[in-house]
Amino acid sequence: MRYILALILCFLPSFSIAQEWEDKQLFQGENARKTLRVLSSTDTAFFAPIVEQFLARNPDWSIEYLVTSTAQIDQLLREDPDRFDIVISSAMDLQLKLVNDGFARALPGIAHPSWAQWRGRLFAFTTEPATIVINKAAFNGKPIPQTRQELILALRQEPDLFRGRIGTYDVRQSGLGYLFATQDARASETFWRLTEIMGSLDARLYCCSGEMIDDVASGKLLVAYNVLGSYAATRQLNDDRFEIILPSDFPTMMMRTGFVSKHTQHPDAAEAFIQNMIDIQTSGAGAGSSRLPPLYQTSETASPSVIVLEPALMTYLDKLKRRTFVKEWMNAVIQ
């Protein structure tokens, strides 16, 4: 008995490493014989319609859908590129760097606007804004801030009300949070002032948008900054305790991207999966069936507030740059 317990204890750590997915789900096709492994940062509920449509068209496949954080995705793929066929992530910078470093397979068969793809390997399929989510009850009767500047003023006016009840991404943990923060910092000095205010009011730090939205809805938080708008909008459908604000001074929009691993065993199926995903997200008809916002296409170019897919995204991933940025951010937030 002691031995068994010891054995269990021995295996537990490795077991737990293997089980460290935020979510793991196997979608079975009707006559599934082969499996595509999709590594993703998108919650299963949001991505399921895309997977199901693919399986409806390709019944001899099944999809193993593995969800983890964006930073974890980057690490996993670099360690073991053979394990996954498709990589979906909201952290554009990490994705671009993976492609730049040669982890993606070229998909010449997919036609996509040049602003929404990089090197014919990385394909964007959603456009999602970073938003401010506020608790309605807390702002009852008060003007709702529409810009970061107005938010700063609101926080300054009632520091005691907001102390400890503001949330934002922990940029050290969340790849998406880091991307939003660095892009905000590029766009305006306002970001640093806001961060300092939030730091002085003991802001809570989160790993994920979902938890921030939960806490705003419940009233634990009054304001959450840089929450993924698509998640918030979906939650708002059956929860009206919070309000979503698209900052009108400078909106930051992210594009969710996907690529096929260079070492995939099933290149054709993986390409078909990406193509199917793009089709759903770009055709007006299919958009209804998806729970993810479509790729925002107004004209030949992306909207100016959308983060551009370009090598410059690697700037803030530089070790020295990241060290400097995180140090500054921590100085502002953790006072």
Partner: peptide, 22 residues
């Protein structure tokens, strides 16, 4: 040593063919 290089350092390397940057 701190090297807080600007976004433009890589931004200027954007090409139509999306060349890889090292």
């Amino acid at each position: 040593v701190e090297v807080d290089f600007p976004y433009a350092s890589f931004s200027m390397l954007s090409t139509d063919a999306d060349d890889r940057v090292f």
